[in-house]
Design a protein around this nucleic acid. Structure first.
Lengths: 334, 334
DNA sequence: ATGAAAGCGCTAACAC
DNA sequence: GTGTTAGCGCTTTCAT
């Protein structure tokens, strides 16, 4: 990489002259500016990012810590963050916590050495289960702002972007009740994390309000054979006529299992799941989904963080932004 | 963040003494080392990453450019890269090209300013279609090594990690022929990219070798309604008894469409697709898949790059590593 | 055993 | 209009 020094030497001027010329300073003569710019162009000069970071004490880099990159929702949020960050000239360094508290701490520690200006993160499951938040507080007190999304720690004072999980599930359940469904099951693999709990509560509220039915919940562990679990559940509960799935794979499998058992979907059974467009397009009939607008969640998180970074002097109040889900009706509901 | 300067001041010693003490230099007195380390611990001192990068002229950061983060395969490769890189103390900066040549160039340009020590990337579709490679060559000539994976540019001299697409598809097709399938269709949405072509060729070779059947290929464009295309294709070609899908969604939809049309899978029709474990677990019956071992691809790419970075003086020959796929037989084949 | 000084690449306040 | 200098945080060579 060419440096200012080399350009200066070749042009027989000082380093600062070159620097000023390239930064369009008024101080430098027109002719000099021209010569400098031409040579810089020729050698494809690019200011060294590291030197700039050191000088300006900011890296224009955001640390993103997510629990699982293979989760389509989280990947999509990452996409949203990346796109928004790029728009503002920020890069993102991605770390994957693998749902582990230890790895989450480690990533935070490793990047809090001047590598990044701030963090966007989604809590690891273990972090939520153990309810540890000290590492977040410490990071923030070091002057590195954090924006949490989806799975957040309410006791940490920072910006947050969340989804209306409770309301969305409540409303989805309501919509099945309006279809006169009388035996709606809630299926979930997300028992450990906050959003899983919120979704279950939304479902329960809707069911309990009917004063007629009892909630019916099927929880599946990560290590279970999901197809078997759902199949045997359906065989035991033959009157199931509606499914609310807290995650896409439960929804997809429930739908396929229903079809396999000869149920007409949606005639005999409706299915709604938290899932993406592509999930919906893969099932026959196409799945009715609760969409979380992951990209917007990511974009919002990036905006909140960048906004905070660029107003460092002024203390801004912490904000919590709710990105509302949308129920996209498709062919798996009436 | 605490700096050496601050520690030095507080301890009434020089900056270099502190630096040496923390780096366990023999030169410094035992007592001093102890005092320094204690204070550093107290203040939670961490060497500033940016300053180190500037000094040592390397960032211990890898730039990863992928065309699409929502592609499960690519996300998994990213995961593999991240894990391997972390193991060796490298961070990764992720850029998403969105299958666009322009964005790919831009990402390369933006990070080639000292932000990263090298690149791991998968070519954007547009890059492959237009066959542009100048930006790669330029980057490499600037001293930034590149490792390409999956979709690679054969005319660029650099390390590569690829999959045995041709052989794998050939063998998968063979295995359906062994099942006495007589009307096997190849379905793909990957027409523009190298791996899509290789897969098609592998299929064609196997079919042509039979000297009995003609290849039958269904190509689907990204913007098409995939379900409709496949459904109408199946209705027109009622004797289809085997499917080789170049991508997971074609495979999943083909299987579901077969079931929908009343075909018994695998009795009447077998389906094999390039897809992941989770895709396989979502269909009923479970999909037989060609697994690409994305994580290993990522890990291999990271190893190749890090190896090259750490032997910068010695010119090593470029390597192409082939990560073999595995055909995982499940319930969608006999 | 400790410290001073140079230098990585850059910007900017301050000479001249 | 151009150059000198200091400094961002760190390591390392070379004095002392």
């Amino acid at each position: 990489m060419v440096t200012l020094k080399q350009l200066a030497k070749e042009l027989n001027v000082s380093i600062s002259t070159v620097s000023k010329a390239l930064n369009n300073s008024e101080e430098i003569g027109e002719e000099t500016v021209k010569r400098v710019k031409e040579l810089a162009e020729l050698y494809n000069y690019k200011p060294n990012k590291v030197a700039l970071s050191l000088k300006q004490n900011k890296t224009k880099t955001i640390g993103v810590i997510i629990p699982d990159i293979l989760n389509h929702f989280l990947a999509k949020v990452l996409f949203g963050v990346e796109r928004e960050a790029t728009k503002y000239g920020y890069n993102i360094i991605t770390c994957i916590s693998n749902e582990s508290l230890e790895q989450e701490k480690e990533s935070l520690r490793l990047l809090a050495n001047g590598s990044v200006d701030g963090f966007i993160l989604c809590l690891a499951e273990e972090t939520q289960v153990k309810n540890e938040i000290e590492h977040f507080k410490k990071t923030i007190s070091q002057g590195l702002p954090i924006v949490m999304f989806d799975r957040v720690a309410h006791d940490v004072l920072c910006d947050k972007v969340i989804v209306d999980d409770f309301d969305a599930t409540y409303n989805a359940t309501k919509s099945l009740l309006l279809e006169k469904r009388k035996n709606i099951v809630f299926i979930s693999t997300l028992d450990g994390i906050s959003v899983g709990k919120l979704r279950e509560r939304g479902y329960r509220k809707a069911i309990l309000e009917t004063n007629t039915f009892e909630p019916l919940v099927l929880k599946i562990k990560k290590k279970d054979d999901q197809q078997k679990k759902i199949m045997s559940f359906f065989k035991k509960n033959t009157t199931i006529d509606g499914v609310i799935a807290a995650d896409s794979s439960s929804g997809i499998i429930a739908l396929n299992t229903g079809v396999k058992l000869g149920l007409k979907v949606p005639k005999n059974m409706s299915v709604i799941a938290y899932a993406s467009k592509s999930d919906s397009f893969h099932t026959i009939p196409k799945l009715t989904t609760i969409r979380q607008h992951a990209k917007e969640i990511g974009a919002n998180a990036a905006q909140l963080l960048i906004n905070r970074l660029q107003n460092k002097s002024i203390e801004i109040d912490v904000k919590t932004k709710i990105v509302k889900t949308t129920l996209i009706k498709s062919k798996s509901t009436l």
